[in-house]
Protein backbone atom coordinates (compact mmCIF):
# COMPACT_ATOMS: atom_id res chain seq x y z
CA UNK A 1 0.00 0.00 0.00
CA UNK A 2 1.27 3.45 -0.95
CA UNK A 3 0.09 6.95 -0.19
CA UNK A 4 -1.78 9.15 0.08
CA UNK A 5 1.62 10.76 0.74
CA UNK A 6 4.60 10.62 -1.62
CA UNK A 7 6.38 7.35 -2.30
CA UNK A 8 9.42 6.29 -4.31
CA UNK A 9 8.69 4.92 -7.77
CA UNK A 10 11.48 3.49 -9.90
CA UNK A 11 11.29 2.98 -13.63
CA UNK A 12 13.44 3.33 -16.71
CA UNK A 13 13.34 6.54 -18.73
CA UNK A 14 14.97 6.60 -22.16
CA UNK A 15 17.14 3.63 -21.30
CA UNK A 16 18.37 4.92 -17.94
CA UNK A 17 17.10 4.07 -14.45
CA UNK A 18 15.10 6.87 -12.88
CA UNK A 19 13.40 7.34 -9.55
CA UNK A 20 10.74 9.83 -8.55
CA UNK A 21 9.16 10.66 -5.20
CA UNK A 22 5.48 11.27 -5.94
CA UNK A 23 2.06 10.77 -4.35
CA UNK A 24 -0.30 8.25 -6.01
CA UNK A 25 -2.53 10.96 -7.52
CA UNK A 26 0.31 12.28 -9.68
CA UNK A 27 0.32 11.14 -13.28
CA UNK A 28 3.25 9.92 -15.33
CA UNK A 29 3.05 13.27 -17.16
CA UNK A 30 3.42 15.12 -13.83
CA UNK A 31 6.45 12.97 -12.95
CA UNK A 32 8.15 13.42 -16.32
CA UNK A 33 7.63 17.17 -16.50
CA UNK A 34 7.84 18.26 -12.86
CA UNK A 35 10.19 15.70 -11.28
CA UNK A 36 12.47 14.78 -14.18
CA UNK A 37 12.38 18.02 -16.19
CA UNK A 38 11.39 16.19 -19.37
CA UNK A 39 8.98 18.72 -20.86
CA UNK A 40 8.75 17.21 -24.36
CA UNK A 41 5.45 15.51 -23.48
CA UNK A 42 2.89 18.32 -23.30
CA UNK A 43 -0.05 18.90 -21.00
CA UNK A 44 -2.94 20.11 -23.16
CA UNK A 45 -6.37 18.50 -22.64
CA UNK A 46 -5.23 16.54 -19.56
CA UNK A 47 -8.09 14.08 -20.10
CA UNK A 48 -6.82 11.57 -22.66
CA UNK A 49 -8.26 12.98 -25.85
CA UNK A 50 -5.57 15.14 -27.54
CA UNK A 51 -2.43 12.99 -27.47
CA UNK A 52 0.07 15.82 -26.82
CA UNK A 53 1.31 13.86 -23.76
CA UNK A 54 1.96 10.64 -25.72
CA UNK A 55 5.00 8.66 -24.56
CA UNK A 56 5.86 4.98 -25.00
CA UNK A 57 5.33 2.70 -22.00
CA UNK A 58 6.93 -0.70 -22.60
CA UNK A 59 6.88 0.26 -26.27
CA UNK A 60 3.17 1.16 -26.44
CA UNK A 61 2.00 4.70 -27.24
CA UNK A 62 0.33 5.85 -24.04
CA UNK A 63 -1.38 8.99 -22.78
CA UNK A 64 0.88 9.92 -19.86
CA UNK A 65 -1.81 12.29 -18.51
CA UNK A 66 -4.09 9.28 -17.95
CA UNK A 67 -1.44 7.00 -16.43
CA UNK A 68 -0.58 7.09 -12.74
CA UNK A 69 3.15 7.43 -12.05
CA UNK A 70 2.94 4.78 -9.30
CA UNK A 71 1.53 2.31 -11.83
CA UNK A 72 4.76 2.65 -13.87
CA UNK A 73 6.99 0.96 -11.28
CA UNK A 74 9.49 -1.22 -13.16
CA UNK A 75 8.33 -0.14 -16.60
CA UNK A 76 10.25 1.29 -19.51
CA UNK A 77 9.27 4.84 -20.54
CA UNK A 78 10.41 6.50 -23.76
CA UNK A 79 9.96 10.19 -24.46
CA UNK A 80 10.90 12.42 -27.36
CA UNK A 81 14.04 13.48 -25.45
CA UNK A 82 15.43 9.95 -25.80
CA UNK A 83 15.24 9.69 -29.59
CA UNK A 84 18.40 11.55 -30.65
CA UNK A 85 21.70 9.67 -30.39
CA UNK A 86 25.18 11.23 -30.37
CA UNK A 87 23.77 14.55 -31.50
CA UNK A 88 21.96 12.89 -34.43
CA UNK A 89 18.20 13.23 -34.58
CA UNK A 90 16.13 10.08 -35.06
CA UNK A 91 15.09 9.48 -38.71
CA UNK A 92 11.48 10.25 -37.71
CA UNK A 93 12.52 13.62 -36.29
CA UNK A 94 14.58 14.33 -39.42
CA UNK A 95 11.61 13.45 -41.62
CA UNK A 96 9.32 15.81 -39.65
CA UNK A 97 11.79 18.63 -40.39
CA UNK A 98 12.17 17.64 -44.05
CA UNK A 99 8.41 17.60 -44.68
CA UNK A 100 7.65 20.61 -42.47
CA UNK A 101 5.20 18.44 -40.53
CA UNK A 102 4.09 21.10 -38.04
CA UNK A 103 3.08 24.69 -37.60
CA UNK A 104 2.90 25.56 -33.90
CA UNK A 105 4.72 22.35 -32.94
CA UNK A 106 2.81 21.71 -29.72
CA UNK A 107 1.49 18.31 -30.79
CA UNK A 108 4.76 17.31 -32.48
CA UNK A 109 6.48 15.33 -29.67
CA UNK A 110 3.35 13.20 -29.31
CA UNK A 111 2.99 12.76 -33.07
CA UNK A 112 6.62 11.68 -33.29
CA UNK A 113 6.29 9.10 -30.51
CA UNK A 114 3.20 7.61 -32.18
CA UNK A 115 5.07 7.37 -35.48
CA UNK A 116 8.14 5.85 -33.80
CA UNK A 117 5.95 3.11 -32.30
CA UNK A 118 4.27 2.49 -35.65
CA UNK A 119 7.56 2.12 -37.54
CA UNK A 120 8.92 -0.35 -35.01
CA UNK A 121 5.92 -2.63 -35.55
CA UNK A 122 5.46 -1.99 -39.26
CA UNK A 123 8.48 -1.43 -41.51
CA UNK A 124 6.42 -0.53 -44.59
CA UNK A 125 3.28 1.29 -43.43
CA UNK A 126 0.64 2.61 -45.81
CA UNK A 127 -0.81 6.11 -45.47
CA UNK A 128 -3.86 4.43 -43.90
CA UNK A 129 -1.65 2.75 -41.27
CA UNK A 130 -0.19 6.18 -40.43
CA UNK A 131 -3.68 7.69 -40.16
CA UNK A 132 -4.63 5.02 -37.62
CA UNK A 133 -1.39 5.54 -35.68
CA UNK A 134 -1.81 9.32 -35.31
CA UNK A 135 -5.63 9.53 -35.06
CA UNK A 136 -5.12 9.83 -31.30
CA UNK A 137 -2.84 12.86 -31.70
CA UNK A 138 -4.81 15.99 -32.48
CA UNK A 139 -3.15 18.64 -34.64
CA UNK A 140 -5.29 21.75 -34.68
CA UNK A 141 -2.99 23.46 -37.18
CA UNK A 142 -3.97 20.74 -39.66
CA UNK A 143 -0.44 19.52 -40.43
CA UNK A 144 -1.57 15.92 -41.03
CA UNK A 145 -0.52 15.75 -44.70
CA UNK A 146 3.03 16.62 -43.65
CA UNK A 147 2.89 14.23 -40.69
CA UNK A 148 1.78 11.33 -42.91
CA UNK A 149 4.44 12.20 -45.46
CA UNK A 150 7.06 12.35 -42.70
CA UNK A 151 6.11 8.89 -41.42
CA UNK A 152 6.26 7.36 -44.89
CA UNK A 153 9.55 9.11 -45.60
CA UNK A 154 11.10 7.91 -42.32
CA UNK A 155 9.96 4.36 -43.10
CA UNK A 156 11.64 4.54 -46.52
CA UNK A 157 14.82 5.95 -44.96
CA UNK A 158 14.91 3.08 -42.45
CA UNK A 159 14.51 0.45 -45.17
CA UNK A 160 17.34 1.88 -47.23
Amino acid sequence: MLGPGAADVAFEVNGHPASVHVPPHHTLLDALRDELGLTGAKRVCDEGTCGACTVLVDGRPTYSCMTLAVACEGRSIETVEGLAHDGQLDPVQQAFIATDAYQCGFCTPGQIMSVVALLRANKAPTAEDVHRAVAGNLCRCGAYPGIVEAALRAARARRR
Binding site: L2, A71, E73
Partner: peptide, 9 residues
Protein backbone atom coordinates in the same frame (compact mmCIF):
# COMPACT_ATOMS: atom_id res chain seq x y z
CA UNK B 1 -7.27 14.80 -8.59
CA UNK B 2 -7.64 14.58 -4.84
CA UNK B 3 -5.00 12.50 -3.00
CA UNK B 4 -5.70 8.80 -2.48
CA UNK B 5 -3.89 5.66 -1.34
CA UNK B 6 -2.86 3.02 -3.85
CA UNK B 7 -2.61 -0.75 -3.65
CA UNK B 8 -1.44 -3.19 -6.29
CA UNK B 9 -2.43 -6.66 -5.10
Amino acid sequence: MKPFAYARP
